[in-house]
């Protein structure tokens, strides 16, 4: 009886959602799946490996694919786009992240007031979780550092590495419900990393091309595939890694509250 009434109520919603999906599907019939759409501007008898004239190319994807190893020295093209070609955009994304984390803290400080009365007793975690987390935590943090250090060579980068570090800290919070990282240390790491990002951008203003976040050292220090091949790009990704890691750790800690 209960089931039937809820089903009746959600029938219009299901119909509306399916209508929406059908409409979008009709639109996507035109979009071919798996077609090399970015390569429409290539010459007719193009062979892989051939030099192409990038002056007249307007598709950004094709231009980035053709030039990225000379311009950025990065083996991972996604990293090249995120940090080099769209570096300013990434600065904006990091700012949004910072604002959202600050907003969580601000909203929680308004909410907290009447929470003090009903403080529940905290159950201690099991011995295996406690000791195992202590053993695994350094390895997880090491892996996160590896991921953002090699962001320009292998899959991964500052965002992924920072999030891996944050999930390691999350394990620590579950294993030690009464303890937590110092807010002061987290905010110092976060603001230093943010300032380092902007400082590396200003380095671009002072070097040859005089553009904010320009990467003029690409390829000067090594071939594509070496750790130092990409100029300032790995340094920026390390800054992003520290910033995202500390921000996500702070976010999880704020959501956890005081041991509830």
């Amino acid at each position: 009886m209960m089931e039937r009434t809820t089903f009746h109520r959600s029938l219009p919603a299901i119909a509306l959602a399916l209508l929406f999906a059908a409409t979008l599907f009709v639109a996507f019939v035109e979009v071919d799946f798996g077609e090399p759409r970015i390569e429409e501007e290539l010459p007719v008898n193009y062979q892989p490996g051939e030099e192409i004239d990038t002056e007249n190319i307007t598709t950004p994807g094709l231009r980035y694919l053709a030039n990225s190893s000379e311009e950025t020295g990065s083996a991972n093209l996604v990293t090249a786009v995120v940090v080099n070609y769209r570096g300013f955009d990434t600065l904006g994304e990091v700012t949004i992240l910072f604002l959202a984390a600050t907003g969580v803290g601000a909203l929680l400080s308004f909410i907290k007031d009447d929470d003090e009365k009903k403080k529940k007793k905290i159950l201690p975690p099991s011995l295996i979780l406690n000791k195992g987390a202590r053993l695994v935590l350094p390895l997880i943090i090491l892996f996160g550092v590896y991921v953002f250090l090699h962001g320009h060579l292998s899959p991964g980068g500052g965002f992924q590495g920072g999030v891996i570090i944050a999930s390691g800290m999350l394990l620590f919070y579950i294993a030690e419900p009464t303890k937590g990282a110092s807010h002061k240390v987290i905010s110092i790491i976060e603001s230093t990393a943010g300032l380092a990002f902007i400082g590396l951008g200003i380095v671009g203003l002072m070097t040859a091309s005089k553009i904010f976040l320009a990467n003029d050292f690409a390829g000067d220090w090594g071939e594509v595939g070496m750790l130092v091949s990409a100029g300032l790009l790995p340094l920026i990704y390390i800054a992003i890694g520290f910033k995202v890691g500390s921000e996500m750790t702070g976010l999880v800690e704020k959501m956890r509250g005081d041991g509830s």
Binding site: Y46, P48, G61, A66, L77, V82, D89, T90
Partner: peptide
């Protein structure tokens, strides 16, 4: 030196990552 024609489009991936 010649990535054109051998890899997928990196731009949507960069967009989705952030």
């Amino acid at each position: 030196s010649s990535t054109t024609g051998s890899v997928v489009d990196p731009i949507p991936q960069a967009l989705v990552l952030t």
